[in-house]
Amino acid sequence: MAVIQALNLTKVYNESEVPVRALHNINFEVTDGEFTAIVGPSGSGKSTLLHILGGLDRPSEGKVTVGGVNLNLLSSTKLIEFRLFNIGFVFQAFNLIPVLTARENVEFIMLLQKRSAQERIKRGQELLDAVGLSNRADHRPVQLSGGEQQRVAVARALASRPKFVLADEPTANLDSKAAGNLLSIMSDLNKKLGTVFLFSTHDERVIHRARRVITLRDGEIESDKNNSR
């Protein structure tokens, strides 16, 4: 079953005198349980595509449906609420709340969802266990390494029980060991929980671990194939 559908997506930025076409006529579907990489050189439109798929930006043309909901038809307020309950995000620069501990960062999303304290604590602990950080739960981001921060970000992304997780260059700021560790965790959670992971990258290690690879070039899909390992 299709979790995400991108239909004729086009994005043109009109911020400068010359309009910049970031995406052109993108069509694809992501189904349950996928672990998919969107690859391509810098400027190929990877981040723009992820932002549109995640409802952070709107396409100039075309539409995105997530679980059958057309994101174009949602108001800004509804879109924020939709993201809260349906989409998890992992950012390149971790983007944790610096004054909160790892545990509080994970629980924060559930707080926004108005989940009970009991549920927040239980699920927060489960997720920190899953990313191997239960012993670092009470540390603040500044006290964690880059790899640990990104693992907290993955736990946070999953805290809301999303339909899918969008990860924008998740390993770009990590060393080889930390990146490999993170990918293993993401892959395990994908298999264990069935949560869709969709990430942009030009990191060969990530591409190698993905089961499907969509290649973008100049805003268009150059190739879309299953990864045979």
Binding site: S76, T77, R83, N95, L112, S160
Partner: peptide, 11 residues
């Protein structure tokens, strides 16, 4: 980031 992950305008 807060708005991206679902923090509403009012909050």
């Amino acid at each position: 980031m807060l708005m991206a992950v679902g923090m509403g305008h009012k909050l």
